[in-house]
Write a protein that binds this DNA or RNA. Structure first.
Length: 474
RNA sequence: CGGGAAGUAGCACAGCUUGGUAGUGCACUAGUUUUGGGAACUAGGGGUCGCAGGUUCGAAUCCUGUCUUCCCGACCA
């Protein structure tokens, strides 16, 4: 039965999205505009994202730190492009009670300034390098239009800040961390992101270049989900982060940053969820299996407990829904919450020596014989669901991937069904601006697969230099 | 900052035209019977109708003012 609390995805995508967030109890609005309350169901997903990524970061030699929540204005002002890029979004703290702060401070929107300030004090020799620091924290950026997870004023993220003795090493780090994000999206979130460089116009304020992960939502709108920036020596010069190299010469350090946010949860919803609610890929689902006993029956309870114990022993996150709700309610709730697998154990089935297993992604119900290895079956099914979800996402992405050879193509595509639009580009920002006039379409990233779909710029018709993916963004 | 809509119980709304006991559904509490796709019954609790002023014997309802929120156009992980 369709969930009546959820607007149909094909009727009103924006409404559908917020309905899913609410129905699955991921987050709620608060009295503070643009700042959401992340509820247990939502936070559990974030904790799992953190756990998996954090382990990966550490495997690659990174360590976690925590920098201040306030950034003195003078510090921010040292890097011109950064302050200019962020100025409209900064929230300022000026006083406490009747006393003025020593200095006007920005609530952190990103922490390059603080990390540089720290590194400046702690780096003397090339032997102190690299520094591979990361922090998990909240940041604040004043946004006019806000939506839960997708664009809130306060959001949670991780920001990695590393400094290196050579440009090569720093660039390797930039690429490596983007590869981590790419891996995470494809393998864990089952989202087939496209990776590439941002154009000059779209790169991070102050970066030499930015690499990005671009996801395609169900409705064909693009979402930037994970970025890795190479700064070269720009920031270290602005903040005076230098070291003595092997030749006993003073040199500015090479700096990188990379980040991924709670927006990933928005991506999971907009790629995988449906009219029945959330659908979680098994690898990111905080609870992968729910066991639902039906009716009061000793044998039912016994079996439920056994499955729970054995699944847990086998590394499957599961729980028994022992609430006093009706079975129908429990089915519906497991469904709206996106639990990948539901095991239904009831006396009626047990008489026939079977149990019922339902998968959330396809909503198929299967009965399996008690003589089969339920644990093995469930574990196998989790892998199948993960794989199937990824393949369906790839299929959807490919269906919404188009080629444009000129502005007419571009306009026609954007007016019917937006998506990833492949189009060649001459490299001139004027062309980017002109394309943006069509429904706000922007360059998403430059693809470096060597493929040339045309020789001419999609906009001006001059010789093309780059293969770009264009699209409408969130 | 321009264009539209709405403020009544935790939520969704009705009541307003034509002023007269504050309503419905969901949720909540207690109990009983239930349990294979959002259970049923019984009994409860919960409101200064956004705020201020005015008209009136009497205002959720009419008038004036005011505040807030949401949706659509320029920036953004």
């Amino acid at each position: 039965m369709k969930n009546e609390a959820i607007t149909s995805r094909d009727v009103d995508f924006a409404k559908w999205y917020t309905d899913v967030v609410r129905a699955a109890k991921l987050a709620d609005y608060t009295s503070v505009k643009g700042c959401i309350a992340i509820e247990p169901n939502g936070y559990a997903i974030w904790e799992k994202i953190q756990a998996i990524m954090d382990a990966k970061f550490k495997e690659l030699g990174h360590v976690n730190v925590q920098m201040p929540f306030l950034i003195p204005e003078s510090l921010f002002n040292q890097e011109k492009e950064l302050i200019e890029g962020f100025a409209p979004e900064l929230l300022w703290a000026t006083e406490a009670g009747s006393k003025k702060l020593e200095e006007r401070c920005a609530i952190r929107s990103t922490s390059e300034t603080l990390f540089c300030d720290y590194y400046k004090k702690h780096i003397r020799s090339y032997k102190d390098l690299p520094k591979l620091y990361n922090q998990w924290c909240n940041v604040f950026r004043y946004e006019k239009e806000t939506r839960p997870f997708l664009r809130s004023r306060e959001f949670l993220w991780q920001e990695g800040h590393t400094v290196h003795a050579t440009a090569e090493e720093a660039e390797r780090e930039t690429k490596q961390m983007m590869e981590v994000y790419r891996w995470f999206n494809h393998e864990i979130l089952a989202i087939p992101s496209i990776t590439g460089k941002k154009t000059e116009k779209e790169k991070f304020a102050g970066a030499e270049y930015t690499i990005t992960n671009e996801d395609l939502m169900y409705n064909g709108v693009c979402l930037q989900d994970g970025t890795s920036h190479y700064f070269g020596q720009k920031f270290s010069k602005a903040y005076d982060v230098k070291f003595t190299n092997k030749d006993n010469k003073e040199e500015y350090a090479y700096y990188t940053t990379w980040g991924k946010t709670t927006r990933a949860i928005a991506a999971i919803i907009m790629v995988h969820a449906d009219d029945y609610g959330l659908v979680l890929p098994p690898r990111i689902a905080p609870k992968q299996v729910v066991i639902i006993p039906i009716g009061q029956d000793e044998r039912v309870n016994e079996l439920c407990n056994r499955y729970k114990e054995e699944l847990t022993q086998n590394g499957v996150d599961c729980y028994i829904d022992n609430s006093d709700k009706s079975p129908g309610f429990k089915f519906a709730e497991a469904e709206v919450n996106g639990i990948p697998i539901r095991i239904e154990v009831g006396a009626r089935d047990l008489e026939k020596n079977i149990i019922t297993i339902a998968r959330r992604d396809t909503r198929e119900k299967m009965t399996i014989d008690l003589s089969t290895d339920v644990i093995l079956y469930t574990k196998g099914l989790l892998e199948i669901i993960q794989k199937d979800m990824y393949e369906r996402a790839v299929e959807r992405r490919n269906k919404l991937t188009f080629e444009a050879h000129n502005l007419d193509d571009m306009e026609k595509i954007l007016n019917t069904q937006p998506g990833f639009i492949h189009g060649m580009w001459c490299g001139d920002e004027a062309c980017e601006n002109k394309i943006k006039e069509i429904k706000g379409c922007k360059s998403r990233c430059i693809v470096e697969d060597g493929k040339r779909i045309d020789d001419k710029c999609v906009c001006c018709g001059k010789e093309a230099k780059y293969h770009v993916i264009w699209g409408i963004q969130y």
